[in-house]
Design a protein around this nucleic acid. Sequence first.
DNA 1: GGTGAGCGC
Length: 144
Amino acid sequence: MATRAAVAAPHVLRRFFCSNSASSTFPFVPTPPAGAVPTPARPTAEPNTNLFVSGLSKRTTTEKLREEFSKFGEVVYARVVADRVSGYSKGFGFVQYATIEDAAKGIEGMDGKFLDGWVIFAEYARPRPPPAHLNNNSPPFGRQ
DNA sequence: GGTGAGCGC
């Protein structure tokens, strides 16, 4: 006698998964802030001659970046970061003024403004580690 | 092919 046993209805099992009582208060509080945070993630760097410009269009080039920022101060260095292989712009760049006060005027004059149809954001760039070009061979990973 | 938050070779 081969009596096919009826398979358990899957809809009955739904009740087990629908029992979501995870609304209980866990003893673990995922909220670390018990006061003022001394080290925020990225509050913007301190005033310097280097400016970080983001929100650039993919078609915005370095010379265009310098040209626009040169109207608010003396730009001694400007570059749009692009991939070294493909050559396409990453959408952000750096502008360095001769003085910090020129950099401040550059931010006030270009931050939130339109450039090639995109709203750009100019702010002080972070201090980056030195290129360490003392040695020609500078492998990113040192041997043990 | 060219995105859409970001920090450069």
